[in-house]
């Protein structure tokens, strides 16, 4: 009996003293944190993907609360609904941002790009790009090593074994930009999703002169400039033998698609093509079936060293 009593008393005393120490410590070392940070963090998706440019969701929440404005802050995973919630917690105005998606700008499938050598090294784009220009004649295009697939946290990008190119699953893609950073060739670009996921873009990043590019790949941009001429909105620029469609200017009229001799300009999720009707309204009114799963099968071959060196 005595024994039990001693045990109870001694343990109880230890517990009391420890509790006291903890209590005092928590008072003394308490750090004030804006309670709104926790609130904001709660509504964020907690994917910690870094797509917003901050280290994880709590970093983003912290930045939102401290900045006092939501200018330039956007959670790519949660999109507009989450940003609205964040804005309501903080009592701020939310910026209207168009949803974006990752786009693979290379269409150099096994059929389009004949192999000229066999890569026997480690299957990693980063390592292959140290080694040489790639297994095909195109030294700008997709290396097919799947670094983007490994970088994706959302299981939204996969290699297509038939084409050897990565494909973005639009429903899963949060446009966090991890694949863009992972690609040593800068083939993947984050572009506005477009109305009904309809997009037009140049699916090539080859900066070689026309004949060389053409020899390397059947669907390469040869820098002929036809698309630049035909574009009524001035959305297309030609630099280093490569056309680029500015998504903010492009009205998706698709004139460039028809005119491209190499079929390097790709249109996605549009209803079946009627070459003569090229007006946007016309297309919208047709109200065709929504593509259930917009899978993008595009692989690009491009390299822009400037962006590379970040």
């Amino acid at each position: 009996m005595n024994l039990i009593l001693i045990a109870v008393i001694s343990l109880g005393a230890i517990a009391l003293i420890s509790a006291l120490i903890l209590f005092l410590a928590s008072k003394k070392f308490a750090v004030f944190e804006d309670p709104r940070i926790t609130e904001v963090a709660k509504v964020l998706p907690q994917a910690n993907c870094g797509g917003c440019g901050y280290p994880g969701c709590s970093g983003f929440a912290n930045a939102c609360v401290k900045a006092g404005s939501l200018q330039g802050k956007y959670c790519t995973v949660g999109g507009q609904p989450v940003m609205t919630k964040v804005a309501s917690i903080l009592g701020l105005e939310v910026e209207e941002a168009e949803p974006t998606v990752a786009v693979v700008r290379c269409n150099g499938t096994c059929e389009h790009r004949p192999l000229v050598s066999r890569n026997d090294g480690t299957r990693s784009c980063a390592i292959t790009s140290l080694l040489y220009g790639g297994e095909t004649g195109c030294s700008y295009g997709c290396l097919g090593g799947g670094d983007c697939v490994n970088a994706c946290q959302f299981d939204a990008i996969h290699m297509n074994p038939v084409t050897g190119l990565p494909e973005v699953d639009e429903d899963k893609c949060t446009s966090c930009g991890a694949c863009v950073k992972a690609c040593p060739r800068n083939i993947i670009e984050v572009r506005p999703k477009g109305k009904k996921s309809r997009r037009v873009y140049v699916s090539c990043v080859n900066k070689d002169r026309g004949p060389i590019a053409k020899k390397a790949c059947e669907v390469s941009c040869i820098g002929c400039g036809k698309c630049v001429k035909v574009c009524p909105f001035g959305a297309i620029t030609l630099e280093n033998n490569l056309a680029y469609i500015d998504p903010n200017v492009c009205k998706s009229c698709r004139k460039c698609v028809d005119v491209c001799p190499q079929h390097a300009i790709v249109e996605l999720n549009f209803p079946p093509h009627k070459p003569k009707i090229a007006v946007v309204e016309e297309v919208d009114s047709t109200k065709t079936i929504e593509t259930p799963k917009a899978v993008e099968a595009v692989a690009v071959s491009v390299d822009s060293p400037k962006e590379n060196n970040n």
Partner: peptide, 20 residues
């Protein structure tokens, strides 16, 4: 194992980091 492949990758990335 392709040890040197990976060492080269690391050297390349670390070199870029140092330059930056």
């Amino acid at each position: 194992r392709p040890i040197l492949d990976y060492c080269r990758l690391g050297k390349n990335k670390v070199g870029a980091m140092i330059r930056a």
